[in-house]
């Protein structure tokens, strides 16, 4: 998600551009909160299997840390590739 779209809106007065920019900021906040929720759900589902205690054990905690770090790295790589394709910069196989 970027602000390049604002280019289409030159006919709007300054006040509306500010409003549009604020809307984009809010969508980005919502987006990152959703990402956070998905990350928690995924790492919990993959790493926590037993419910004999109410606190995470060491193994579960390590698993969650790795899962979260891996998901973030994955997400960044996907974002880079996605941006390249959006710019038509596809490289040969």
């Amino acid at each position: 998600m970027d602000k390049s779209m604002l280019g289409d809106l030159d006919s709007l007065p300054e006040e509306d551009k500010i409003r549009m920019s604020a809307m984009i900021d809010q969508l980005q906040i919502r987006d990152s909160l959703r990402m956070y929720n998905s990350l928690v759900e995924r790492c919990f589902t993959d790493c926590v299997e037993t419910f004999r205690r109410k606190t995470l054990d060491k193994q579960e905690e390590t698993c969650v840390r790795r899962c979260a770090e891996k998901f973030l790295k994955h997400s960044m790589r996907v974002g880079m590739r996605f941006a390249e394709l959006n710019q038509g910069a596809a490289t040969p196989d």
Partner: peptide, 13 residues
């Protein structure tokens, strides 16, 4: 226990 652990994972992340 599930709610408690989910809460901890939320804080950890």
């Amino acid at each position: 226990r599930c709610v408690s652990k989910y809460w901890q994972v939320t804080n950890l992340v």
